[in-house]
Design a protein around this nucleic acid. Sequence first.
DNA 1: TATTGTTATACTCTATAACTATA
DNA 2: TATAGTTATAGAGTATAACAATA
Lengths: 145, 145
Amino acid sequence: MTGTPRIDTAQLMELLSVSLAAYYGDFTVAAASESLTASQGKTLNVLRRGPASMSVLATTLTCDASNMTGIVDRLEKRGLVRREPSPSDRRVKNVILTAEGERVIDVIRGKMHATLAGLNRLSAQERDTLYALLERAFTAQLAAA
Amino acid sequence: MTGTPRIDTAQLMELLSVSLAAYYGDFTVAAASESLTASQGKTLNVLRRGPASMSVLATTLTCDASNMTGIVDRLEKRGLVRREPSPSDRRVKNVILTAEGERVIDVIRGKMHATLAGLNRLSAQERDTLYALLERAFTAQLAAA
DNA sequence: TATTGTTATACTCTATAACTATA
DNA sequence: TATAGTTATAGAGTATAACAATA
């Protein structure tokens, strides 16, 4: 097996940026169809994995903590999340997805037609391979832990 | 080779969102180090591939055409891009990267340390495989053309 | 003293609608 | 008539700095 041309890191990063743009565009359109901004949608998507404090949310979304106040305010006003003071540290507020928030983010994910179609273009074995490679490349924390 | 567990589309999409968030965060921090917003950086990155009209830029960045005016205005004011009327259609304005703009986007890409380190964690053959899989999954246009 | 979250502020991003110039 | 780009406007995202409550 020597049929594949050698791809350097720059080329791969370039394709990564194109893939990200496609994924992000798909997500943005899907979120807009539920009257959510991309940042609001991303916040719900992070909270699918479980509750998170304001500062953890800010770190995950790569934005300043002060931004999260407004984003979570709007999501809370629509009943998609709720704030809950942490029992162990009264400074901390944990943000939790409501049942309605869970429903909405599942709808959005289901509307990512282009991405879903793209992934289904791969065989089951290819999806396994892609999963393993992404995990190796993008989750350095696991290696360090 | 049956050692890899079967990954379903939802799991893969989940890891994809984590991976792309990592890439996007890396890019956002690198762009900020050059005093550029993520949108301004993305615009420069698209223009690396060659000139593009305002409407093509808007489509690529998944935003309304009216947004591009302000983004390109600010980039032009900093001398990173310039507008040039299309010879074939006088309504169209092509946006072109200046030498300084090319320098800045190259600096930003070089500062994406986490992403570069992650990709270099893979072997050359693994990078080829990742490239091929991403291309299949995210560039449906090629298959349609 | 340091940290979590909020508020105030200024700038940028974003979509919608209305407009001009060109096709 | 339709399309490319701009302008005006209002709401949302963003970082910085200053603040209150808690650790």
